[in-house]
């Protein structure tokens, strides 16, 4: 099996400060990888470099495209990369308002991504939008309302619907459950897990919440000061951590 995403030697610095460095891994179809670490460990910098939101100083991000096989996305032209971001890739932001158009209706938010890939039939677009609102458990009656009238949890689910409507193969998520209360988090986790399984998605999830990765991620990468210090199966890393920092991280979690 060939990897869906093959990352080699990624490095990003901000002046003399190292954002992340020496990052390399392969992600296979259907795999969900979590990236954990404290604030400032470089996990969001890395995610942004992988997803084409930031340009790394060096390295390769090779993605298995549908048409042309493995391509280094960092060498693609901007229009090619934009197309990838609209079709095979999705990016779920921590703050839904960064990933949504707040002054456009819920249906419009979902439909816009379809239109960006060429859908033109209004009825079809509206039907897909309604279908996706249903899948993320937003009532169809709210299709014409703006996200500004939605709760935080609903906005987050709308953002997920907007991202997944084009059937992407790789989803980048930055703290997808951050800032949501626990009952909403559970609902979102359940939703994400079902979508990952049913659609065969691969995903990279950045979070500082170890409970979230335990439930969602197959594999884990632990970062500290811009370096990847430990990788492995999620339960292996959480139950038998090898590195001093990982042991500290795992033992610092409050038991409930």
């Amino acid at each position: 099996m060939t990897p869906l995403l093959s990352v080699r030697d990624i490095r990003k610095t901000y002046g003399s400060h190292v954002g992340c460095t020496d990052v390399a891994f392969d992600l296979y179809p259907g795999e969900v990888m979590g990236i954990v670490g404290e604030s400032g460990s470089g996990k969001t910098t890395l995610l942004n470099c992988l997803a084409g939101q930031l340009t790394p100083d060096q390295g390769q991000v090779v993605f298995g495209t549908r048409e042309a096989g493995p391509r280094d996305t960092l060498q693609m032209s901007e229009p090619e990369r934009r197309m990838l971001r609209r079709t095979d890739w999705a990016f779920v932001h921590q703050h839904a308002r960064d990933g949504l158009r707040m002054n456009v209706s819920a249906g419009g938010n979902v439909g816009e991504r379809l239109m960006a890939v060429g859908a033109r039939h209004y009825g079809d677009i509206r039907d897909s939008a309604a279908d996706w609102l249903g899948r993320v458990e937003i009532s169809e009656a709210r299709i014409d309302d703006r996200p500004t009238t939605f709760s935080g949890g609903m906005q987050q689910r709308l953002q997920i619907a907007r991202n997944l409507v084009t059937n992407p193969r790789l989803v980048f998520m930055d703290e997808p459950t951050g800032g949501l209360d626990v009952s909403v988090q559970a609902r979102l986790l359940d939703l994400l897990r079902g979508l990952v399984r049913d659609m065969g998605l691969s995903a990279i999830i950045v979070t500082h919440d170890l409970a979230v990765v335990r439930l969602l991620a197959d594999r884990l990468m632990v970062m500290k000061d811009g370096h990847v210090i430990e990788t492995g199966l999620t339960d292996q890393v959480l139950d038998d951590p090898q590195e001093p920092y990982t042991q500290l991280l795992v033992s610092s979690v409050l038991q409930v």
């Binding site: 199966l233 339960d235 292996q236 139950d239 038998d240 090898q242």
Partner: peptide, 9 residues
């Protein structure tokens, strides 16, 4: 048991 399951190294 956990080593056989791959849970412990």
């Amino acid at each position: 048991m956990r080593m056989i399951y791959g849970n412990y190294f």
